[in-house]
Nucleic acid binder design. Sequence first.
DNA 1: TCGCTCACG
DNA 2: ACGTACGTGAGCGAA
Length: 870
Amino acid sequence: MSEKIVLIDGHSILNRAFYGVPDLTNAEGLHTNAIYGFLNILFKILEEERPDYLTVAFDVHAPTFRHKMFSDYKGTRKPMAEELRQQVPVMKEVLRAMKIKIVEQKGLEADDLLGTIAGIGERAGMDVVILSGDRDLLQLATDHVKIRIPKTKQGKTEIEDYYAADVKARYQVTPQEFIDLKALMGDASDNIPGVPSIGEKTATKIITEYGSVENAYAHVEELKPPRAAKALKEHYDKAQMSKILATIEVNAPISYELSEAKIGNLYTEEAYEYFQKLQFKNLLGRFDVEAKGNQIENAFVRVTDKQQAEELFARAGKEAFVGVSFGKEEKDAVPLFSHSSGFGSVGLAFSEKEIYTIVAEGELTMEDLFSLVETLAKTTVVALFDVKAALSYVRIEDPESCFDVGIAAYLLNPLKSDYTWLDVAAEHLSLLIDEKTEGYCRSCYEAYVIWAAAAVLEEKMKESGTEELFRTIEMPLLFTLFAMEQAGVRVEAEALRFYGEQLGTKIVELEKEIYAQAGEAFNINSPKQLGVILFEKLKLPHGKKTKTGYSTAADVLDKLAPEYPVVEKILEYRQLTKLKSTYADGLANYICADGRIHGKFNQTITATGRISSTEPNLQNIPVRMELGRLIRKVFIPEEGYVFVDADYSQIELRILAHCSGDQELIHAYREAKDIHRITASQVFHTPFDEVTELQRRNAKAVNFGIVYGISSFGLSQDLSITRKEASEYIDRYFETYPGIKKFLDDTVAHAKEMGYVVTLFGRRRPVPELASSNFMQRAFGERVAMNAPIQGTAADVMKIAMIGVHRELTERKMKSRLVLQVHDELLIEAYEEELEDVKKILKEQMEQAAQLDVPLEVDMHTGRNWYEAK
DNA sequence: TCGCTCACG
DNA sequence: ACGTACGTGAGCGAA
């Protein structure tokens, strides 16, 4: 059997992969989807063809000689998307790591290289296979040169194969004639002009009959239809030029040694490392080189003996820090006593070689192990994943004695969706662990990853300037949040049920009325059904559309409500069902036996540094509408206690004033209370006392907009004014506060240069959108860059305040406790006798949390329920 | 599971 | 010309 060579059109396949594979990025934010797609198709082809030689050809992005001649025509090629462009050099490195021959040559297109090498291969008696997404290559097909073109059909990649005969069968022309076909019909994607008014049909007809552009021209008088004859006569120069453009060079002067293209072992160590770095986990299975993991696994030891366990903990205590994990109960383990935590082992790692899993078995109980960990934390730093969760089992008092790996990873990149130890291993240790690993091995891995990652993460935090934030804010805060979760908030179940029932009655009434007016029953909560009823059956004027149908969002319906009573009813129905399902019924499900809701406060969710609240979300309890606000009456303190609610007054705007150093705004905040009125007065050049309500409202909207990363469109939407008017407001605002304008511009510029923005306390947020080739994405990036430092600094300040409040309450051994945080608001369940002290603490800690150039002001209210206290 | 809608700051 | 305000979480319907 003859030998075989596979030739790949690098850019073409990379390009296909880029658009065919959903966006992927690795830990460093590098886009990897095109590389991933390329490798997948490469492996597939290699398996199918089993070639002896392999070469990948790339274009060098400089004018090539064919196109230099006609620079008008090829000069307009679209620039490559940034997300793809950055993958090209990496792709080449990966191929080099796999010892795959790459050819690229200035002045030559990949086509020409492929054509020339195909010729070399064929003359050497080989079978040649060319892989490309570009049909131009079909002209190279012969009986021994096969062109393979991948196509996406219903999400699946199918490959069309063309030998010379197949080209003839598909296009009715030979590969040689295919060039002439192109010359006549042109190819917009390749900037080949072709002859105007001649399309695929006519071109095929002409070439099948005359075989070439030249011969067709020789017989131009007999050409049919006459229209084509006329076109060819007038544009023969274009046809000739197109033919040159379409012709692939098969004898280019290149130095190419077949021997260099011989396929060796693709699965080299370097390639393995690249695959790790790029996080192509399911491609790693192809490597049988010793995985990095194996060396680590050799150190894993399973321990069940109590004395041995104690010795290990004692040894671990002498190290600077120790990685600790908690493992699930083993099915076959037989503990003497049952334990409720669901854990059955502890992983312990304190060097590359000291990695253990200690299983609670026989005399050794889980409680023993927890207490060993507690003791350990007294002499060394215990690194854990999710310390807050661990605190339920292990009493650690001091934030300095532990290290939360998840939080550290979050601070280094807050954009990720989750921070599991497996993710951290891949991202920060380049260690890909099989998710299916179970038992003591898993527990050892986890402990090892925690131990190894803690050192790496600490170093990275120091480098990025986030270490202090971690140590002085995030770690202490976790203890505060833990206390808040434990405390929970009391909710009156009976009152909640009553509230829900009342809503239920009203909902049924509304339902009937809506059905009557619609003329039929339907599901009002289905935007799809509602859209059909409103805009098709009742023929109401529809506004914007969504991907799936008509928009029935509140702002659309609001505009219709005054004219159509049924719309009014629908809005009310929506409001009521929302209240019932999410709040009345929703919250009821979370009330525990102690009559309280113990929601979770998450520290590693938001991109900006805010805390998030889940199960249930206690940060979006209604307040804006009276009917919803009433639900706050069911949030009550324990007997003998009252609620104190304290919220920062316009903290974000104050932070903006401070960060920008804008004298006018700073002055305004030092002077008076009503900042929106001051803004209105200054922006609209109206005496303070003569500012109208409308002016004030507009100024307020602009103030909000500034914090969000202003855009005239957004503001116009909010105020229901034209973009032009909105734009004028913004201009006048920036004239009034030039410092703000400069600050926002500088922030965006910094973000573009560095790739991230930073808060007053060093919290970072990467803004990868700024490097996007997409206009919308970039504009979004700019708004994010403007907003994140402000929202993030406000979050930092609040966190500092929370730590301070919690510290004061606990150090003074007070009964009062922090129960909720709603971004700029704290709710304290205050023991009545401590009320005055609590108020003092809240005010003091919140207002002194940061020293800014403008005062931080706090509004406080007391009440017998949350409704009253707000 | 995804998109829509809507509750909050 | 593009089509948007920033940050969240939950419930629902439709596939």
